[in-house]
Structures are given as structure tokens and as C-alpha cells.
Design a protein around this nucleic acid. Structure first.
Lengths: 184, 184
DNA sequence: GATATTTAGCTAAACTGGCGAGCTATATCA
DNA sequence: TGATATAGCTCGCCAGTTTAGCTAAATATC
């Protein structure tokens, strides 16, 4: 895995000097500078987030996908739902072969166990253990609290503005379609 | 690399029904729902962005780190700066061994070339080729345009609100310190 | 100036985590 | 009943990374 440092796949201009403060005259030029600064702020945030995820992952000494699977299992477990390897493979969009390996690792480390499916004898359930539940909660609960605290004071208007911005950006990145590679 | 599907390392509640619209009465409960929705929006955006990066990466058929290195080199090249492998290794926080491998690949694929350092005979420069410049621009220029277009119409106030939110979230994730693993 | 230490990049071997192909057992369709 | 589809597993392979150690050159110390 190599999602270490966040950023970036772009050649955007450098951000303007942060010391110049947050206000800009609203010329075309100022708008552009604001936009660039904002995108830069998104990149910085992403960098911080990726770093946080890396720390978390390492503190539980497991890979990203292993942790994602565990999290998915715990959420399902809370709702009383049972999960099969195939479902997990589809969720992560990895091959069933890889999923077998992931479950192997999680089983070996005592985070999940395999159980026979109630009716389909080809299939199994992957069940998170009680320990893994506590471990994940301890590891992730702190983050959840902090992130919620960072946005809980926002007004309805502010929230709307941020969400709309996110929506526009999402539409933008969705429309970036990678062209075919040269040789194909 | 496994940054496929974005999200997540958390057990946050499900978002509230999006059909319920963007307005909420401002009770404690409403605030909380808003906050959760907002965080969910961030996760969705991240998922979209990660997917976009994957597409881009694949369209140039190279790894994330290779692309990051190339981008770094191009930016430096624009400024007339010369870059050494060591600098790149520090930038990506990988070992010098990995960086050697990355440069090997990029050299083989014709994206960069190695040159002798002007004064330090232990060291080298890594120079991006003209072709790679064009290729990256073609691949990434479109994304840059679209993302800028998504935020260029925003007012100064709106921009400020979003940036402040990002700053608060960044502080929050920075403070999430992974505890030591059990065995150490 | 000679010697010791540090630095820069490279090589080799090992590890990780992913994949496709193919296997077995079971379920389902015609 | 027989053909086909599905579920999960095994095997061999590959990409990319790491650690340890190497050589050569620069820098610090005596």
C-alpha cells in the first residue's frame, strides 16, 4: 500500500501567501486565487487524514483492507446481520482469492472466526470476535469524537455551504475520465 | 496500493435520510445529525476522489508513487530547480532503495533520465523528459480545470467557511494519535 | 594532511498483498 | 437427472516495498 502522503495528482499553482489573510477583493483574479487556495486546503486536509489513517492502521498492525473488512463486519454485527466472504469481496472490490487471504489473516490474529452458513453448505459466515469489537472501538472512537467535535458547532447555513462545495467537487472529479492509455 | 475505496476507519452512525432535505431545526439533535451528514459527505467526496486518482493512475499505467515523483519533478523543473533521488525519497517518505526502484521504472518507461550532479560526484539529478511533461499535463490538466471550475464561483465568505471547516477537521485528525500497539 | 565519520545512491534478499486460473463441493435450473 | 452456476479455497505469480549492507565521495576531526 502506498497512500502515504496524500496529495495529489496535479500541477496546480502554489497557494498564495497565507499571511495575506483570508479576504480578497472580488476581482476575477482574486476569485481565482481564492479557488486555488481552497483546493490547496483540501489537499492539506487530505494529507492529514491519510496520515491519521496510516497511524491508526499501524497501531493495530493490519492493512487498510483488513481494517475496512473488520469495520464492515462490526457494523453488520451491530445490526444482527451475517456476512459472507463473497459479500466482503464485492464490498471491497477485490477478488475472492484476496478476500480469503484477508480473512485468513484476521482469523489468525483472532479478530474474526469462520462459521458454517445456516443453509448454504458451500458458504460461510465471517463473525467478528468480541475482542476485535472493543479494539476497534478503542482505536476509532477517539477519532470519531474529535471529528464530530470539529463540526458540531456549525450553523445550518455553514453546513449547507460546505456540503454543496463537496457535492460540486465530487461531480467534478467524477467527470475526470482517464483517457485510454497510449498503447491499447 | 490499496486506497481503492476510500473511506474509512470509523463506526459512525448512518447518515440521515438525504430525502429529508438540507434544512434542520436547530436542536441539539439536529445539530448532531447535521454534523454526521457533513462527515458522511466528506467521506463520499473522498471516495470519489480516490476513484478518480485510481483511474488517472491506471491511464498512465504507473503506480501512485511513480506519478507523485513525476509530478514533483515537473513542478521543480518549471521553477528551474534540480532534484536528487534523496530529496524525492524524503518527500515521499520512502527508503532510498524504493526511490532507486521508482526512478529505475520511470527511466525505463522514458519519463525521466539520470544526470550527473554538477559538483557532488556521489549524487545525481533526476530530470523529467519533455514527453512526460506533456503526458502528465494532458492527463491532469482536465482534472485541474474541472476542480477549479467547481469552486471558482464561490464568494469570499463561502470560501472562508469551507476553509475554516477544513482547518478544524485537520486539527481534529492531527490530534488522533494512534496508541502504541499492544506488543512493544 | 591523514584518518574517521557521514552521506548518496545502489544492490540483494525477503516480505506483503494483490491477482488469475483452476479446484472442490454444493445449489439451482431445465 | 444432468448441466450449469455459485461459494470459497489453493496455487503460482507479480508489483512494490523494506532492511541490511555495499561502494564511492564529501565532510569533520585530530
Amino acid at each position: 500500500m502506498t497512500d502515504e502522503y496524500a496529495s495529489i495528482i496535479d500541477l496546480m499553482p502554489e497557494p498564495t501567501d497565507p499571511n495575506s489573510g483570508y479576504w480578497y477583493a472580488d476581482s476575477e483574479d482574486a476569485r481565482r486565487r481564492r479557488a486555488v487556495d481552497l483546493l490547496q486546503a483540501f489537499r492539506l486536509y487530505r494529507a492529514a487524514e491519510v496520515a491519521m489513517r496510516r497511524r491508526t492502521r499501524e497501531s493495530m498492525s493490519m492493512g487498510e483492507n483488513d481494517l475496512l473488512v473488520l469495520r464492515y463486519l462490526l457494523k453488520a454485527h451491530q445490526k444482527g446481520e451475517l456476512v459472507s466472504p463473497g459479500e466482503l469481496a464485492r464490498y471491497l472490490a477485490v477478488s475472492t482469492a484476496s478476500m480469503t487471504a484477508i480473512i485468513d489473516r484476521l482469523e489468525k490474529s483472532g479478530h474474526v472466526r469462520r462459521e458454517r452458513h445456516a443453509t448454504d453448505r458451500r458458504s460461510i459466515y465471517v463473525i467478528p470476535t468480541v475482542d476485535s469489537d472493543e479494539e476497534v472501538r478503542k482505536t476509532l472512537g477517539d477519532m470519531h469524537e474529535r471529528m464530530l467535535g470539529a463540526v458540531i458547532e456549525m450553523s445550518a447555513d455553514e453546513t449547507r455551504i460546505v456540503m454543496e462545495t463537496l457535492a460540486r467537487l465530487q461531480t467534478a472529479v467524477d467527470q475526470v475520465d482517464a483517457r485510454e492509455p497510449a498503447n491499447r
